[in-house]
Design a protein around this nucleic acid. Structure first.
Length: 572
RNA sequence: GCGCUCGUAGCUCAGGGGAUAGAGCAGGGGAUUUCUAAUCCCUUGGUCGCAGGUUCAAAUCCUGCCGAGCGCACCA
């Protein structure tokens, strides 16, 4: 499959040649998918752009380009102000899509320059449950990691957990005075939260207790053996619970180097930054100013508090350096909400000043809102816990499956419910443009209509069903070479061929919603094909061709969903 | 005050220099002796927040304004 080229690549290469013949800069060889099927399969606006630069008539230039363009299986036409439209022959598309049957990568090219990419995402806080605030980072980050890996990049996923900070004073005090051992065993993080809240409440009216809490924190920071061992247990218990949730979500990390991992690096780091005149004292604290950044002029970056304590900015700088030393990354992606935009802008400015020139990207995203358009919260105003969200997704999916297929075994219903419920939850997040705030709706994400995971999974399930039936009818199932006669077949084939173009495009601006849309359109094309083109009842050659199209569709759907971190059931 | 992000159909959202601005839901009308109707087809619906500017071409880029959300010194 080395010589396989996507339709887009093929057209771009030939267009470069044609433009060269006509004497036009090859940079203008930009090919896009046609805006409308009426205009063919692909189009280029090169003639219009070139006409402007060369002060020539766009349609005449288009004529010359078309005359110089060489690709047998593609017909060209000039339309409108100077658009050039490309339309492949059915035979050519059929031939191309047939070759995909032999390709394990279903037409997705491997990156020609593999990069080392560190992806920093999820980052929950120890002794607190994960909540809605972590969901987008977790799902988005995982999907980006999967896609980057599939394209051949070296990816390191690092969960920068919040395992150090002032909250430990309260947790340790609570642990020593109010710990309920039984509760700690059954629901560890819940118990830790209870301790935190109890101490927090008492503290307000009790200055003596407040001082004692403060003392526990200081002892921890100074390395007190007992407090350190309590802290370790708290971290372990929390991580264990996080891991269960990640496992349920099929998400894993290469590293989970939390904030505490960098503790010892912080003091020398600040000293060094002061010595190098990058940081300076201001109002008792140590800060970094950005005199060369107009928008950051009045926004210093605090790296040491006036009481000597460090901040997450300090840890982030230490992390920056650690990652550089250990992995020499070409890129570092921080998958973190848009409210932290300023922090990352500052952090990246520091990185540049330190001479780090990886491609740092803040992969920002908007908030999840409730039906009232406000940040999603429980009725009492607390954050909604991830665990309860996952459970509800599965429960709701179970209801639907049980209603639709009461005869499935309980075990199968449960498994299908997990795949559908969690898939729906993930997909609802990923199908959204990441910058927009979106309104969370169970009914929408679990619907079988529209751009949802169940709709895509259903398309896959229908294909599996066809193959089960085919197997009943005859022992061997033959996938023949594909021929495209019906419009629905052609449209489906084109969608299949474009999978290999979409995947790299997702990484261009780090937006899996592009992939979601492509998969939705594929499923939609398949459903249309399914309605219009009988498969098993067709005569042999057509049957084999249509089975092949169905098989490819199933593979693309499965692979595409996999890249989103979503599974597919065999039945539903 | 400064900054960031966003204003597109009744609702939820795509589209981020190109052709007559698209989907889903909701509303209306159809299709089922079936390979899963958990689907498909048809249809109603829009001054792309407002005003300027750049361009052969602006929902898209620039400026200003209005509106919403979020950040901006010792939390993360």
């Amino acid at each position: 499959m080395n010589e396989y080229k996507t339709l887009h690549t093929l057209l771009t290469e030939r267009l470069v040649e044609a433009l060269a013949t006509v004497g036009i800069n090859s940079e203008l060889a930009v090919v896009t998918m046609a805006a409308d099927a009426r205009f063919g399969d692909y189009q280029t606006n090169a003639a219009m752009v070139a006409a402007k630069q060369l002060k020539k008539n766009p349609r005449e230039l288009a004529q010359q380009i078309v005359a110089s363009f060489q690709l047998e299986d593609c017909s060209l036409e000039i339309a409108g102000a100077g658009f050039i439209n490309f339309r492949f022959s059915n035979d050519f598309l059929a031939k191309q899509v047939t070759t995909l049957l032999q390709d394990a990568r279903i037409g997705v090219p491997v990156a020609n320059k593999p990069r080392t990419i560190v992806i920093d995402f999820s980052s929950p806080n120890v002794a607190k449950p994960m909540h809605v605030g972590h969901i987008r980072s977790t799902i988005l980050g995982d999907s980006l990691a999967r896609i980057a890996r599939f394209l051949g990049h070296r990816v390191i996923t690092d969960n920068h957990i919040g395992d150090w900070g002032t909250q430990f004073g309260k947790v340790i005090y609570g642990w020593k005075h109010f710990l309920n051992e039984a509760a700690l065993v059954s629901a560890p993080v819940n118990e830790l939260v209870r301790l935190y809240r109890e101490v927090n409440a008492l503290e307000e009216s009790d200055p003596v207790l407040k001082a004692a809490v403060r003392e526990e924190l200081v002892k921890l920071q100074q390395g007190d053996v007992e407090n350190l061992s309590i802290w370790k247990k708290v971290v372990q218990l929390s991580w264990k619970e996080f891991e269960q949730q990640y496992q349920l979500l099929s998400i894993s990390f290469d590293e989970h180097l939390g904030e505490s991992f960098y503790n010892e690096a912080l003091a020398p780091l600040v000293e060094r930054l002061i010595k190098e005149k990058i940081a300076q004292e201001s109002e008792g604290a140590i800060v970094i100013f950005f005199h060369n950044h107009p928008t950051l002029l009045d926004k210093p970056f605090l790296i040491r508090k006036s009481d000597g304590g460090f901040l997450y900015a300090t840890t982030d700088i230490a992390t920056l350096e650690y990652r550089e030393q250990r992995w020499h990354p070409d890129a570092v992606w921080y998958v973190c909400g848009v409210p932290q935009q300023l922090h990352f802008e500052q952090l990246m400015a520091v990185a540049r000043r330190l001479g780090l020139n990886s491609d740092f990207r803040h992969v920002a995203f908007g908030s999840i809102l409730g039906e009232d358009r406000k940040m999603m919260k429980t009725r009492s105003g607390d954050n909604i816990e991830l665990g309860s969200l996952l459970k509800e997704a599965i429960d709701r999916a179970f209801q639907i499956v049980a209603e639709k297929n009461p005869d499935f075994s309980l075990e199968e219903k449960k498994e299908i419910a997990r795949t559908i419920g969690l898939g729906a939850l993930k997909y609802a997040d990923l199908m959204q443009h990441r910058m927009t705030d979106y309104i969370f709706s169970w009914d929408k994400m679990l619907s079988f209509q529209g751009n949802t995971a169940p709709y895509l999974q259903n398309a896959y399930v229908r294909i599996r069903s066809i193959f089960r039936k085919a197997k009943e009818e005859s022992e061997t199932i033959e996938l023949g070479s594909i021929c495209l006669q019906e419009e629905a077949e052609r449209a489906l084939a084109l969608q299949l061929l474009q999978f290999g173009e979409v995947i790299p495009a997702v990484l261009f601006d780090l937006r899996p919603n592009v992939l979601c849309l492509a998969l939705y359109e594929l499923a939609n094309s398949f459903h249309r094909f399914y309605e219009q083109c009988p498969i098993l009842k067709a005569e042999d050659a057509i049957k084999q061709s249509r089975l092949a199209l169905a098989e490819l569709t199933a593979r693309v759907l499965k692979e595409g969903l996999e890249l989103l971190g979503i599974g597919v059931p065999e039945r539903m």
